[in-house]
Design a protein around this nucleic acid. Structure first.
Length: 254
DNA sequence: ATGGCAAAATGTTTTTGA
C-alpha cells in the first residue's frame, strides 16, 4: 500500500503530469493540493480512465484539494467542521480502513500579515478537530502541503529563513502540536539524504541548485507508523517540462 | 536595488504563492 501527496499548482495545467506520474507510480492513494478548479471543471473522466476514483472540493483561482484512490472511497468530509471557511483546503475520506485527511495549509505570506494569523488559527482549529477524529480512527494519516519546514535541516539556508514564514517558531509549534496528538513525520522514520526538500522556487535556478524547503509531509498515527516501511520524495517530476514547484512525497505501508 | 518564475483573473497588469 502506497499513499502519496503532491501540490500540483493547478490541476488544469498539471493533469498530464499527474497522469504520467500515476502511470509510472501506481500509488493506492494520491492527495492533491492547489487544484485551482471549481468542482464542475474537475477532470474526473480522465482520472477514472487512469484507474482511480476521486473526491474533491475546489474553488476558482486558489486552493482546492482532492483525494485520488484505486480503492473505494467512503465517508467524505469537506473542510474542518469547526472552522467556517470559504477557502477549500481540506478533504477527508476513509479508504481501505484508513482515515485519510488531505490538507492544504495556508501559506501565511509574511509573519506580519493577517494571512499569517489566519494560518495559525487554521492550524489550531485543525488540531482540535483531528484530536476528536483520531479517537475514532486508529489508522489515521494527514497528508498535504503544510507550508511549514519542521526543522532547520529541512531548509536549504536556515540563516536566511530564520524567523521567516514557513520556518517561524509559532508555525513549527503548531506542527508540533499536531504531532503531539500522536502523529509522526513518516519521512523521519527513516534515514534520509541531507538537504532533502519537497519544494523549490521557480526562480534563480533553485531546483538545479537544490535551494528548497521540505514543507510537504505525511503524518501517520502510531498504528500506521508501525506499518510504514519507507517514505521518499520523488524529485523526478520536478525535472519535467512545465513542472509544479512541489515534488510528490510517497509513504509505503505494509 | 527586496528583483527573479508561474498561474490565473483582476488581463498588455495585478495578485498570490512559498
Amino acid at each position: 500500500m502506497k499513499i502519496a501527496t503532491w501540490n500540483v499548482n493547478s490541476l488544469k495545467v498539471r493533469l498530464p503530469h499527474v497522469l504520467q506520474w500515476l502511470g509510472e507510480n501506481p500509488v493506492d492513494v494520491l492527495c492533491i493540493q492547489e487544484t485551482k478548479l471549481t468542482d464542475d471543471k474537475f477532470p474526473l473522466a480522465e482520472i477514472k480512465e487512469a484507474g482511480y476514483d476521486a473526491v474533491f472540493t475546489g474553488q476558482k483561482t486558489y486552493n482546492g484539494v482532492a483525494i485520488l484512490s484505486r480503492h473505494p472511497i467512503t465517508d467524505v468530509v469537506r473542510n474542518n467542521p469547526r472552522f467556517a471557511d470559504e477557502q477549500q483546503r481540506i478533504i477527508a475520506a476513509t479508504i481501505e480502513g484508513m482515515r485519510i485527511v488531505c490538507a492544504y495549509v495556508p501559506n501565511g505570506q509574511t509573519v506580519e500579515s493577517d494571512k499569517y494569523a489566519y494560518k495559525l488559527a487554521w492550524l489550531a482549529s485543525l488540531r482540535d478537530w483531528l484530536e476528536e477524529e483520531m479517537r475514532s480512527h486508529a489508522q489515521f494519516a494527514l497528508l498535504g502541503d503544510y507550508n511549514i519546514a519542521p526543522d532547520d535541516r529541512d531548509v536549504h539556508d536556515p540563516v536566511a529563513w530564520a524567523g521567516q514564514v514557513l520556518c517561524s517558531d509559532p508555525e513549527r509549534a503548531a506542527l508540533q502540536a499536531l504531532c503531539e496528538l500522536g502523529l509522526c513525520d513518516s519521512f523521519r522514520l527513516f534515514e534520509q539524504a541531507e538537504k532533502s526538500f519537497s519544494w523549490w522556487d521557480y526562480r534563480q535556478l533553485a531546483f538545479r541548485r537544490n535551494c528548497g524547503l521540505r514543507i510537504d509531509h505525511i503524518l501517520l498515527s502510531a498504528a500506521l507508523a508501525r506499518r510504514c516501511t519507507a517514505c521518499a520524495i520523488d524529485r523526478v517530476p520536478r525535472k519535467w517540462e512545465q513542472p509544479s514547484d512541489h515534488a510528490p512525497v510517497v509513504a509505503t505501508l505494509a
